[in-house]
Amino acid sequence: MHYLLQQIVNGLQLGLIYALIALGYTMVYGIIKLINFAHGDVFMVGAFLGYYGFAVYHLPFYLAVVIAMIGCAILGVTIEFLAYRPLRYAPRIAALITAIGVSLFLEYFSSLKFAFGPDYRTVPRPFTEIHWQIAGTTITNTQVIVAVVVVVLLAFLQFLIYHTKVGKAMRAVSFDHDAARLMGINVNTVISATFGLGSALAAAGGTLYAVAYPQIWPFMGIMPGLKAFTAAVLGGIGNIPGAVLGSLLMGQIEVLTAGFISSNFRDVIAFSVLILVLLVRPAGLLGQAGPEKV
């Protein structure tokens, strides 16, 4: 029983970090119907920027997170501007292949000696670890910090999307580009803002990931990126609460499989659940099934 509780706590930490990545996938898909395969690599860059911030330049942890978020927001906006915007009206497959290209570029460019370098790096703790025993379960301050940061960011995102002008414009654009243009909304600006926001969240996720699972390298974004993408699809791609729900489930499935069956099976079971859910609900758990708009 204690073991189960412990695994659930661990799964929650993983799921919350996935949520920060999955949101970027789902928001970008919602607004331009693109699976941004480079998003996992933006997460990786975020992890490195955070690492440089608190481990190399010894900045306070919160400042390192903020700098990583700003850096990745700029990166995300740049990627959209250079790689995806010229293909806005091209067939979708062109943008998809470009996304894979951007992903590979970020991975291999980061591996260059003058960039982050090809090696694994061990991330020192930005703060001394504290363990609490609650109901027979060990909770660390890292877990608490991960949870607090993620919840604060989710609340901020919720506020932004439902209560600010740019957030409402994002929802309008995701529904109908042309109608949004007719309102005087600069659709390109809104798309840039979406990339910036999604990338900033991924950067926060990357920094937290580097603290919680303290080893980073240029290819670290592939698997979490894929998992978070899966989580977004599981919850219903394009749906923001769905991305969070899917991520939390994904975290639990992975950790519980590793804890009770075998860690060799964690990915198999995680992806099998995705397939099963999609068989029953093709639009995902919270996605709205229906004919796609033309």
């Binding site: 002008k165 414009a169 929802r171 309008a172 109908d176 042309d178 109608a179 007719l182 309102m183 909304i185």
Partner: peptide
């Protein structure tokens, strides 16, 4: 300013938010 064919209202926004988008500029 155009009110387009087929209305093209933002179905995922409330009436209030649709009007707000109208005043976007």
């Amino acid at each position: 300013v155009q009110a387009p064919e087929g209305r093209r209202i933002f179905a995922n926004l409330t009436v209030a938010e649709n009007l707000e988008m109208g005043a976007y500029t």
